[in-house]
Structures are given as C-alpha cells and as structure tokens.
C-alpha cells in the first residue's frame, strides 16, 4: 500500500441543531475520525453564505464540508433546502473557477448520527487527500499543516485493519 503524506486542511460548517450535536455525540461516544476537519458552528446550514466557502478555499483550506439537518428535519423548517440550492450552484461556480467541485461536500447528519458524522468526515478527508492540495496560497497557510505533517504519519485514522486482512496479507 502506498502512503500519501499529504494532510489536507478542511473547514467544516455545522448546524447548531443537528450536525454540531452529531460531532458532540461522536465525541461523547469516543468515536475516532480524521483530525483534518475544523468546525464552525452556525445556527443553520441556511446561514451558509457561499462566500464563506470561497474564503476558506482561498485562505488555505483544501476542502470544505457543509453539514446540515436531513431534508424535512430542519430546525427552521426548510432552510436546509436553501443550503442545498446554494451548494449545487456553488459547485458550478467552483468548476468555472477551475477548482474541483468535489472539494466541497454536503452531508446531512442528524443529532443522533455521530457515527455517520465521523465516517463521513474520515471519508471526505480521504477524498481530498486523493485530490491533493489546492494549488494556491499553500505556503501562507501557516504552521498547522506542517505540524500535522511532522507528526507521526502512522496515526492516520485509517480504520484498524482487521485481523482477517492481516491474515490474508501475510
């Protein structure tokens, strides 16, 4: 297996009522997931101004994860649909700007879905890892990325290989 040493930096926007609580639940349940995502709490995914995403990407993030309540479960009735609309539009804009639209991902996670939040986070980090760094302004990004790089690379968050796999690999 080849090891990719690139550690992406990802900004996550969360909804105060569902996904932020999902992250809390993942914590309370001590689920482990990739450390690359840093969260921002908003009252609702509908609060997401697309310029926030562009700001994050321009200031050194390699990907942006937008999370909100499942369709039909919005605390504010239907504002997550507005987030969905903006998200779809934003992806087209990103494409026009020459940025891979896959760098932005929308995930629905209810307050009960800590496990889903953790799994989606880890999966998204892997997707961004495959895409590689966003090719501008990298070096201005600051020290954090280097610190992760200098850390023990074996820590990476891959789920533990099952004993079965080890057996087969042996």
């Amino acid at each position: 297996m080849t090891h990719n040493t690139f550690e992406p930096t990802i900004i996550g926007f969360t909804c105060n009522w569902c996904s932020y609580r999902a992250a809390d639940l993942a914590g309370t349940a001590r689920m482990k997931y990739a450390p690359n995502v840093r969260l921002i709490r908003m009252m609702c995914s509908g609060r997401l101004d697309p310029t926030f995403v562009l700001r994050a990407l321009s200031e050194g993030a390699d990907g942006v994860m937008i999370t909100g309540c499942h369709p039909g479960e919005c605390h504010y009735i239907e504002q997550n649909y507005k987030a969905l609309r903006r998200y779809l539009l934003l992806k087209r804009v990103l494409k026009g700007m020459g940025i891979e639209p896959e760098r932005v991902k929308l995930v629905w996670a209810s307050a009960a879905e800590g496990a889903k939040f953790a799994a989606e986070t880890t999966a998204f980090v892997e997707e961004i890892r495959k895409l590689g760094p966003l090719s501008w302004g990298k070096d201005e990004g600051g020290g954090m990325k280097d610190e992760i790089k200098n850390g023990d690379s074996s820590l990476t968050i891959h789920a533990e290989r099952s004993s079965f796999e080890k057996e087969v690999a042996a």
């Binding site: 290989r161 099952s162 079965f164 796999e165 087969v168 690999a169």
Partner: peptide, 8 residues
C-alpha cells in the same frame, strides 16, 4: 468487505 481478499 475485505479489500485484501479482493486483491488476492
């Protein structure tokens, strides 16, 4: 389910 098996 078991990528290692799939690879083999």
């Amino acid at each position: 389910e078991r990528p290692a098996l799939g690879a083999k």
